[in-house]
Design a protein around this nucleic acid. Structure first.
Length: 205
DNA sequence: AACGGGATTCACT
DNA sequence: GTGAATCCCGTTT
């Protein structure tokens, strides 16, 4: 009774090699934040993979190492958060082993726990798909910002859980191209975005 | 010290 | 569909 209802994913999961496979596998899992004693959770519905050295869309392309990107080179299982367009905190999970600099951007979730808290954080009155779809919107609803740069996904602020109760078919996952990376030349067309097409909480179909 | 741009969102036409 | 908002950071001077 009441077993397996809360299974935090361990660091070894994030340290697997294939960032694209992990990005797809994260669909359907549950992401949780517990910030200022306010717990929010949701089902991951949309992700994008960014692959370290090779990927022209990745901030760590060709080993670029700066104050912003340095956490990407840590062992998998930490958060990489950065400010985009001066407004939006984008939340990523670093994967693979040290120095590989692979990352997965969380682009959308379907809210589960803490909807009232999310509404307050987003200055909204009613739940609709914009509450937690789109990477900036998700981060704001879950109160994830630059203060979580480098946070361990094995810690107590933000983590991901197995979600065995949530079932879906393989055909419910759409594989397509990433968004907002037109500068990445030929890599802009890599099929490294995944979303659960039966959810309405998707940034773009 | 200055400059330019971005893994976006929202309001408006 | 178009454009403004907004600021940190990486690059250049």
């Amino acid at each position: 009774m009441n077993k397996n209802l809360s299974k935090k994913i361990p660091a070894s999961y994030y340290q697997q090699e294939d960032v694209v496979a992990i990005a797809k596998d994260l669909i359907g899992k549950k992401i949780v934040s517990n910030i200022n004693d306010q717990l929010t959770s949701g089902i991951i519905t949309e992700t994008e993979a960014y692959r370290g050295y090779d990927d022209k869309a990745c901030h760590a392309h060709l080993g670029k190492f700066t104050d912003r990107t340095k956490v990407m080179y840590e062992d998998g299982g930490v958060a990489y958060v950065y400010l985009c367009y001066g407004i939006h905190n984008l939340f990523n999970i670093i994967t693979n082993s040290k120095d590989q600099a692979d990352a997965i951007l969380i682009r959308a979730v379907e809210p589960v726990d803490g909807v009232e808290v999310m509404l307050e954080r987003r200055n909204k009155l009613k739940l609709d798909k914009t509450l937690t779809s789109g990477p900036g919107n998700f981060s704001k609803a879950f109160a994830l910002d630059k203060s979580h740069y480098g946070a361990f996904l094995t810690g107590d602020l933000v983590w991901i859980e197995e979600n065995d109760q949530f079932r879906f078919r393989e055909s419910e996952i759409t594989t397509t191209t990433r968004i907002g990376i037109d500068y990445a030349q030929e890599d802009k067309d890599l099929p490294w975005r995944f979303y659960l097409n039966t959810s309405k909480f998707i940034s773009k179909r």
